[in-house]
Nucleic acid binder design. Sequence first.
DNA 1: TATTGTTATACTCTATAACTATA
DNA 2: TATAGTTATAGAGTATAACAATA
Lengths: 142, 142
Amino acid sequence: MPIQEPPTAALAHELHKTLGRVVRRLRTEPGPSVGRLAVLGRLDRDGPSSVSALAACERMRPQSMAQTVHDLETEGLVSRRPDPADGRRAFVELTAAGVDLLQSTRTRRETWLTEALERELNAGERALVHEALALLSRVADA
Amino acid sequence: MPIQEPPTAALAHELHKTLGRVVRRLRTEPGPSVGRLAVLGRLDRDGPSSVSALAACERMRPQSMAQTVHDLETEGLVSRRPDPADGRRAFVELTAAGVDLLQSTRTRRETWLTEALERELNAGERALVHEALALLSRVADA
DNA sequence: TATTGTTATACTCTATAACTATA
DNA sequence: TATAGTTATAGAGTATAACAATA
């Protein structure tokens, strides 16, 4: 009798793989990676933020976020402004180039992913996927 | 007015990140990575298979699967048996060690992921997540 | 001593390109 | 020429460990 993988583990793995395919395909479009775009988007929405705060929001280690921020800084998409109240901290903020890139990327990305999701899924199905995200987030934090 | 990321792109990215957290946490348990375990599980369920066929099932490039199979072979978890009918092909199959590992890993993995999913989600919610997988698979292939 | 952040290194997963061997 | 497979290289994403600077 064949060994059965636990269905729940298989479910998590398959979902991750499938989403990976979506995200990798997204990355074939010009522009920054989805992960970096997420940081730019967050800075735009929430304003300047420390590396630690960004890491916590994106649920990454501060060291990993430091690398991401460093890369974005090298590319001129973000800059740092020292916190006068605390010499250890700096505010990471979008540069004008970062804002421009975010805006133009958003437009290009819409050319396929949004179209694909909106073509393939109806509003109810998209809501279902969103609900699944909330459920799995709960599991990941458990 | 802040730039709004396209909600659908943000949805795909967030889901991917969340599932990544689940899978990485799974990997902190002893045993092979989730991706390799998937290959072992498939060989156990479907029997010996060529590298190409495995790659197609897992929706990876054959070159990537060749690397995975090579690693598994090095670890003694799978072996190759040449196809007498076609000198180019070989059947990849589980070794006794691979079967043992699959079985013992399944047991250990159940200690946290299955418990977490079953503790955090009820049957209806797990069904919802499964449905979301099917929808997103459609998008990734579109 | 705790917090913020960096540097160095390594691992997983997957991709592309260039290649060999067999059909 | 087409197919099965390998090797080499690279990149995204993230982790751990060790460290510096400031509070």
